[in-house]
Design a protein around this nucleic acid. Structure first.
Lengths: 205, 205
DNA sequence: GGACTTTTCGACATGCAGTGTCGAATTTGG
DNA sequence: CCAAATTCGACACTGCATGTCGAAAAGTCC
């Protein structure tokens, strides 16, 4: 989000968060998360390990770069939702709108998802980020039903919605046979239906 | 689950997981999680830091001792559920049955919940444990709807159910004005209703 | 162009989590 | 009393994360 100002003041940066992200993603998939040291990532980018921590506050943070973008997309989509649209309909549309990726970005996205769903240490690092995602939902729900954002109902909706989406993410990353939005749509419809009628797997129809 | 055999063979243990758990819980609440070193916990129990890691594989693991018990309780409750009971009804009953605590255990439970909901590092350590909880649900759902346990629908139900319960846990730990089961019941009813009608906060009626 | 400011970087040091190794300590069983 | 079993403590080591401080590299102003 740092505006690309053409001429900054002091010494120019030796690398970028994006470069470190790509290098780390490659090394993690090649040799594993735990087997990759920060020293290796930094060395591959031509900087010191100390500098790595000037770009990211932790080893796993390198994988959560693009996550904030999605949260913001959901937020703005929910802000534009018409008032007569049912709450869970609005939520579903917002999530789907925020998860349309260009074909070129899909392999990287899948790589990231696979790591999140596979490596426990990375999954653990997610809990903090998920809070922002959930808040985007719960604050919208709170507005619509006229309750404080930290009340039980909005909180439950936010948590459950993210949980459903995570399940869809993981299934998609593991199977790779359909569009991500198909999985998300199915999961969110099942959620809004109270899980009364079971769902047929997207790929198996 | 180590059966308390009265006479074992070699040198007797210098402490127990339970003792370490209580000491750690006290120190964490007194001075914070990050501010408490394993050296302090071990010293308070009269053992070396190396020995701490013979009882737990990580610093945060010390707080998840009793979690497995709950998962097992849910599992067995679901196994006994009658076939004509709707799926989400059975899930709700099982969760509620597994969360009846004796009054004496409530303060410790609340302490633990507060830490999980407050300290990011502890929340992060939870993701692995939650998997077992979710599997208990999703395997039951898979059985009932005749799908593989790793299919999308059971997966979504498991994730969403745990998410709803976590929201209830946190609200309960933060407010402390009612029984835990009241919060859980409300959250799970809202989930099974597809979040169509909003929920009134348990304490504010 | 030279002095000054701003910003990033590298080197060094430190603390803590987690793991491997190995010998010592302590109990039971013969 | 000796042997087997089991736990513990001491030591060493790697890696993550953070603090400090001076050097490097750019722009800015005169």
């Amino acid at each position: 989000m740092t505006g690309t100002r053409p001429a900054r003041r002091g010494r120019p940066r030796g690398t970028s968060t994006r470069e470190l992200e790509l290098i780390a993603l490659r090394l993690f998939t090649e040799q594993g998360f735990h087997e990759t040291t920060i020293e290796q990532i930094a060395a591959a980018a031509g900087v010191s390990t100390r500098t790595f921590f000037r770009y990211f506050d932790a080893k796993a943070s390198v994988l959560w770069q693009t996550f904030d973008t999605e949260v913001e997309a959901i937020r703005s989509a929910l802000a534009d939702a018409p008032d007569d649209l049912p709450v869970m309909e609005a939520v579903r549309h917002a999530v789907l709108a925020a998860n349309h990726y260009r074909a070129a970005d899909v392999p990287e996205l899948r790589m990231r998802m696979t790591l999140v769903g596979t490596v426990p240490e990375i999954a653990a690092s997610a809990s903090v980020r998920y809070d922002a995602w959930e808040r985007a939902i719960s604050e919208f729900v709170a507005r619509r039903v006229g309750q404080p954002a930290d009340a039980l109902f909005p909180h439950v909706v936010g948590r459950a919605t993210l949980a459903a989406c995570r399940a869809a993410y993981e299934r998609w990353a593991a199977r790779a046979d359909a569009d991500l939005t198909v999985y998300l749509d199915a999961a969110l419809r099942a959620l809004a239906g109270g899980f009364r009628e079971p769902l047929t797997e997207p790929g198996s129809g």
